[in-house]
């Protein structure tokens, strides 16, 4: 942050006030979500806004025991981790070539990939559905994983290419002299240096993949493969008459992303800023 001369003028107070109001506006819905999820349904009506009278976990227990929420959690985790793994591997492989082994057309190829940052993949949904049916991947987590990888690659290549470019060529030359092959240079030298950027790519992609609702809605049909957002949407009807359940469901869908964000916020914000500004 910038070190500026302190000016305790009127504007500072205005900014303080703005920040305070904004804090309330952000936190109130989240507070409401968590607090309501800890109340039994009857209490929500009598005491909709206050803190819960007791720490009631019944809503969560119901969701896990009766609604298979644990299974949906596992499905989401599988989708997220497999997708992230592939995004990172595939993007860093390609980024290595684009950054250090440029050839005729590699600049074009780079722009070709980066254009994906603003191409909404949803516009290809019908054909994706058709393709997944053809591959026999319809109604499997694999279909959603493939889509997530394709959506994540542009950002991965964008960030990682930039980062690899900054790695001094001398380092690679030295390794070549030591007899390292290119793949070995990649795995032994580039990857370890790349870790902070990989962290950014991972965290920035984690959130949209975890939250994706559109493709699971279109591609997944059976209960056994539902992801958390899809289950949340489809169970909304089942529990909509019980607000305690609804809020517990929303809380459970949000906790993983919020925790990940809070732990990794530095890499997250860094990745996003670079992604947004250089684009």
């Amino acid at each position: 942050m910038m070190k500026r001369r302190k000016r305790s003028t009127l504007s500072t107070y205005v900014y303080y006030l703005a920040m305070f109001v904004y804090f309330i506006v952000i936190m109130y819905p989240l507070y409401l979500m968590v607090v309501t999820s800890l109340k039994p349904n009857a209490e929500i009506f009598k005491n909709p806004l206050g803190p819960p009278r007791s720490f009631y976990l019944g809503n969560f227990i119901t969701l896990i025991s009766r609604a298979n929420f644990n299974l949906y959690f596992l499905n989401s985790l599988v989708v997220v981790f497999v997708s992230l793994f592939c995004i990172i591997i595939f993007s860093s492989l390609a980024a290595f070539i684009l950054a250090k082994h440029g050839f005729k057309g590699s600049t074009f190829l780079y722009s070709f990939f980066v254009a994906g940052l603003i191409i909404p993949i949803r516009l290809g949904t019908i054909s994706i559905l058709k393709m997944m049916i053809g591959f026999g991947l319809h109604d499997t987590l694999g279909s959603v994983i493939l889509v997530s990888i394709a959506t994540g690659i542009p950002f991965g290549i964008f960030i990682l290419t930039d980062f690899i470019r900054m790695i001094p060529d001398d380092l690679m030359h030295a390794a070549r002299i030591d007899g390292y092959s290119e793949p070995k240079i990649f795995s032994r030298i580039i990857i370890p240096l790349l870790l902070p950027a990989i962290a950014s790519v991972a965290v920035v992609n984690f959130i949209p993949i975890w939250n994706d609702f559109w493709f699971p809605l279109i591609l997944l049909k059976s209960q056994s493969v539902r992801t958390v957002p899809l289950a949340t949407a489809l169970l909304f009807g089942q529990f909509s008459t019980n607000y305690g359940h609804v809020f517990a469901m929303l809380t459970m869908a949000s906790v993983p992303v919020v925790i990940t964000y809070l732990i990794f916020s530095r890499w997250f914000l860094k990745g996003l800023t670079e992604g947004g500004l250089k684009g």
């Binding site: 985790l77 870790l195 902070p196 962290a199 993983p256 925790i259 990940t260 732990i263 990794f264």
Partner: peptide, 12 residues
Amino acid sequence: LAKRVVVLSLVA
């Protein structure tokens, strides 16, 4: 970074 990865994995 590594520390945080470990923390997250443990939580998960």
